[in-house]
């Protein structure tokens, strides 16, 4: 059983500097055809050839889903990251040919919601831009609460204000403006759904506040892609393919498996979707489970691993791959 949708060969059409940290990239199909439609909240995996290192990072689609002429993503430069965002910022130029995966939505709107309450922090705004465009076209009710470090880093705020007026609320950390979450959560009509995308701390704060305010679990949605962490190199036996591989310090286990020519399933590459779940056949050491997918019991059992974000420390790790 394969879930692989055809990849999309694209040309970089535009690169726009949004602010000191963020660049926006627009891709069009190389054959000039329309992009597949998508749903607000979807992401694509961008494949990069970083001077011989293959990088595949997921980014939320931020364009209007009704616009089939191209896809847009925004990339925040992460100086301490493994290099994907640096590659996008320093090396990707208009006219370059790249490859995108097909859109996948792990952060979909609940179509039944009476109202959509959107809470964004920093670069976490991107899926909401697509979602608001889709809601606006379909007549959905929404309001956005968007926090940024300062005015200069409040990407797309003026445009969103212009498009959606007082449905857009902005907050700036350096002006000590805080979202009044308890009041916001208390005032929503029954049937409202809450969505949060932003830094880990913000997601935790919003989810805990919603629970304390009596919001049902199924009405609270979040998206948090993990960047695969850097770490100490380690060695893995791939039993099914009979290979022994070494995972580099800034390489993920999944990338190392792919680099060895072994096919492995994936969708999000950020520890959220569960697609790359792999059986551990033997483990003498400690698996650093960095994913949001496995349960605590599964993690403790040491019999499963999510190679997109998790690492290993110890003597032997044998995987069924």
């Amino acid at each position: 059983m394969s879930v692989g949708a055809p990849k999309i060969p694209v040309t970089v059409a535009e690169v726009t500097e949004v602010n000191d940290l963020i660049k926006r990239f627009r891709f069009v199909r190389r054959d000039g055809g329309p992009m597949p439609p998508f749903s607000g909240g979807a992401h694509v995996v961008v494949e990069m050839d970083d001077h011989g290192t293959r990088r595949m990072n997921p980014y939320s689609l931020m364009g209007d889903p009704a616009d089939s002429t191209g896809y847009c993503i925004s990339v925040r430069r992460d100086e301490a990251g493994r290099g994907g965002s640096l590659y996008m910022h320093h090396h990707v130029r208009p006219g370059m040919q790249m490859v995108l995966g097909a859109p996948v939505n792990l952060f979909a709107l609940d179509a039944r919601a009476r109202e959509h309450l959107l809470i964004a922090g920093g670069i976490g705004i991107t899926p909401f831009i697509a979602q608001m465009a889709q809601l606006e076209a379909l007549g959905g009710r929404f309001e956005l609460h968007y926090a940024a470090r300062n005015r200069a880093l409040g990407a797309y705020m003026p445009a969103l204000r212009a498009a959606y007026g007082d449905r857009v609320h902005t907050y700036f950390d350096d002006e000590r403006q805080l979202i009044d979450l308890p009041a916001l959560l208390a005032g929503q009509p029954l049937g409202t759904h809450l969505y949060v995308c932003g830094p880990k701390g913000m997601i935790g704060w919003v989810r805990a506040s919603a629970e304390a305010a009596g919001w049902p679990r199924a009405t609270v949605h979040h998206e948090e892609f993990l960047a695969p962490p850097v770490g100490v190199p380690f060695t893995v036996d791939l039993a099914a393919s009979g290979k022994v591989i070494t995972v580099g310090a800034s390489q993920s286990l999944l990338e190392a498996i792919e680099a060895a020519g072994v096919e492995a399933p994936y969708l999000c590459r950020g520890g959220a979707c569960g697609q790359c779940e792999t059986a551990v056949l033997a483990c003498d050491g400690h698996i650093q489970h960095n994913d949001h997918w496995l349960t605590d019991d599964q993690k403790a059992s040491g019999t499963r691993i999510m190679p997109c974000v998790s690492r290993f420390e110890g003597r032997t790790l044998v995987l069924d791959r």
């Binding site: 959560l185 208390a186 005032g187 929503q188 009509p189 029954l190 409202t192 009596g214 919001w215 009405t219």
Partner: peptide
């Protein structure tokens, strides 16, 4: 009662 309720209703 349900029509008048806000989120936070149990």
């Amino acid at each position: 009662v349900l029509a008048d309720a806000r989120m936070g209703l149990q």
